[in-house]
Write a protein that binds this DNA or RNA. Sequence first.
DNA 1: CACCCTTATTGGCGCCGTGTCAATGAGGTC
DNA 2: GACCTCATTGACACGGCGCCAATAAGGGTG
Lengths: 213, 213
Amino acid sequence: MADVTADLLPRWRRLEPDERREQILACAVRLFGERPYADVSTTDIATAAGVARSLINHYFGTKRGLFIESVRALVTIPAVAVEQLPEGDLATRVDASVAWFLDVVSRHSRSWLAAVDGGGVGRDADIEAVLSEADEIAADSILVAVGLDAVTERRTELRAVMRAYCGLAKATAREWLERDALDREQVHQVLATTLIMLVEQVFPTLKSSVKIN
Amino acid sequence: MADVTADLLPRWRRLEPDERREQILACAVRLFGERPYADVSTTDIATAAGVARSLINHYFGTKRGLFIESVRALVTIPAVAVEQLPEGDLATRVDASVAWFLDVVSRHSRSWLAAVDGGGVGRDADIEAVLSEADEIAADSILVAVGLDAVTERRTELRAVMRAYCGLAKATAREWLERDALDREQVHQVLATTLIMLVEQVFPTLKSSVKIN
DNA sequence: CACCCTTATTGGCGCCGTGTCAATGAGGTC
DNA sequence: GACCTCATTGACACGGCGCCAATAAGGGTG
């Protein structure tokens, strides 16, 4: 017998664009964290979100577009984070920054790990740009944290070193979260010590770059 | 008019499996270095190698299989490299190791950059495994270079720190090769100083891990 | 030198995933 | 309650990939 409520309740709910967008994005973040990019079809995401597959294209253009948004959501340091840093000497602020970082990455560990290496297969200029931008923001945040944000001299090199330090941070975090070869305390120690060393030892003595071109 | 040589010279040359395999691999390494994974079709590689597309599947099984081999060929440190390290104190050996690393990566710069981040989009367990293995080998090589390869105590943590250091090495090299924000000398200085610091300062004082499980 | 026999290599088939487009209906408004 | 907007759907076409049987290159054997 036919469902008598068939013509009473709608077949699908109509949401505000922002709302629907966020909902799809949340599903995508989760799925991209669970499986590699190529193994997650847009059909999977659509099913998880309970919508038609083509709606994904409507909101994000392409599958890669959705992936890019997913990565961006995970790797970008919110501005509010750096505003809540404690006052105090270098060691204190570095400790707080490292602790904050470790808190965040351990919370979303699986998805974060998937995001930071850009997925793994398929080097892509757009993804690269998102990760770059995130590193850029991260580098600036670190400069604020260590109190070097006012330094204008040789700022390019300064930020480059900080971006490089981000590479260390990611790799060290991976040793903790993924391989379980280090514990949190050890990761903290490596990152804090290295950062302080970079600021106090390496940077002041860094040979100034001689441009050849 | 029909080509009179049609039945005289063969339509294609028949190579030894190893030979053909290497030829296809070389083309793949080049193309994967030029474009992102998803933008390189097996048809492109087959065309570049002058063979039928299905021959790729015959030799490498799948497209990803071919990609994995391509990455492996680029990121694995040959055993011969560590055997040629000079004698001398820590600073000397570290300098030589860093110099060797910078030589290699700058030589294949484009393909190497593409390989180390696993491509960019599509985090994949197999790729992860190849990069892991390469890091593993690299970590051991570094331990030999800094003369800590005989240390058995807390070896797990020791290698983990070295793998993490590989993350710094990659990121720093990227600042030089890709962004041109640091020059070779500066990269050298950052990597050498940090490595020495890790060996002399961090590791001796690294709190021993307390397993919770 | 002619034949054969191994196997490197090819061409074509079918499947799956993706992006596009016009049609549909949910839900607010007058 | 009718209309109108636009969020949402379903179907279509294209392209890439893996598989399989057919083909021919080229060395071995008489």
